[in-house]
Design a protein around this nucleic acid. Structure first.
Lengths: 213, 213
DNA sequence: CTGAATGGATAGCGGCACTCTCTACTATCC
DNA sequence: GGATAGTAGAGAGTGCCGCTATCCATTCAG
């Protein structure tokens, strides 16, 4: 297909597709003439993935490029790939870390038998965790660390479901893509469901009881 | 204190504080002269809250304004306040909804005894959920709906911890603020922990086993 | 043959979150 | 009683990001 059809089928405007091509988010089509290129279903699929990463994952163009690079790498183990992708989809942010929050994170790791976390800033993910706790501390919520253990309990169930989803629904080739998509879409789904759960709790506990205001 | 000290104590640059004042994120200080105003600890606290919403929650200035307005409203019940806040911290996004995804969401609600969800687009939260499933479908992951139930299982534990946290650690006046902060910081914490759980699973299942690549 | 579409490239735009600059003060230190 | 530093307020400017518009030469479809 040519760019017009790609645009129609994906719902992405032609100039935007051109922009993605320029930015390297989409591989160039096969040129049949100096100004004619053909795109296949793989391009369509990739384009939809890019849009999903941007729309649902809220990733920047730069992050999308990193994620795609990690997905496309052939010479690394699956585990390393996933690690690279996770770094790409976890932006560090600009909060400066509170040493006490860092200590909370380290204590949490120690409690759960993780030994290799000497430096929290080494990974975006642990940095993210420490940054969140730091922010909490800055506004007087230093007890958020108490939530880590129950959260982990809940997440065991969730991560288990994630794992089963991946092994059940995807061919080995697509494992990484499925994990990326599942992680990002899963984040959004979790967010939404958690808010619904809060609303329900609030309705049960507060709405029906005596209104404090 | 004056703006300089407010800046030093919060780590926010003076021009930025002035900008927040102009944008109504921070109430004006008490003017003692035409060009002298005094700020108290409440201003500092509010400023830190604003930064937390922006840094950790990733909220826009406009969303922060909405959240603060909801927090400061005096004439609504706690339950309604929380609802308003949730709408503010859940931006709808631009994805168009897949009717099948909408049906998945409705089926999920029906399964769990929620009857009042005739229109998914009524609330940002349910819209978010439908949008996430739609995005999944567009890239061939229509089975993500199977994750909803296990996610809910895990989230029951997590929401329960959230509830206990709120009732244990906050005075009634600060309940809404605690829920906002807890929700947003909690989102980030959950994200990070989920990634760590995935990494652990990946290490156990793939890293140690035979590498598929 | 002709009008629409294409590949490629460069420039421009709109929104956002600041950041700069300026004026007219005021507070404080020596 | 200067000199210096800080301040309120407001408008303009900045830098980045994700597109979007324009242009050209070419080529395809009817």
């Amino acid at each position: 297909m040519r760019v017009g059809e790609l645009s129609k089928r994906s719902g992405v405007a032609v100039p935007t597709i051109k922009y993605y091509l320029r930015e390297g988010l989409l591989p160039a089509g096969v040129l049949t003439s100096p100004n004619q290129a053909y795109y296949d279903d793989e391009h369509l699929r990739r384009l939809r993935l890019v849009r999903a990463l941007i729309d649902v994952g809220g990733l920047s163009i730069a992050s999308v490029r990193e994620v795609l690079a990690a997905i496309d790498t052939r010479d690394e183990s699956l585990h390393n790939k996933l690690g690279a992708v996770q770094e790409a989809i976890s932006q560090p942010g600009t909060v400066e870390l509170d040493p006490l929050a860092v200590a909370d994170v380290q204590a949490f790791f120690a409690r759960h038998g993780e030994t290799e976390c000497a430096d929290v800033t080494e990974s975006n993910v642990t940095h993210m965790l420490a940054a969140a706790l730091s922010s909490g501390r800055s506004i007087g919520h230093d007890q958020i660390r108490d939530l880590l253990d129950p959260y982990l309990e809940g997440l065991k169930i969730i991560a288990q479901a994630d794992l089963e989803y991946v092994v059940r629904h995807t061919s080995p080739d697509d494992v990484i893509e499925a994990m990326v998509v599942g992680t990002l879409i899963g984040d959004t789904v979790l967010k939404a469901l958690r808010r619904l759960a809060h609303a329900q709790v609030s309705r049960d506990m507060i709405g029906d009881g005596p209104a404090p205001n």
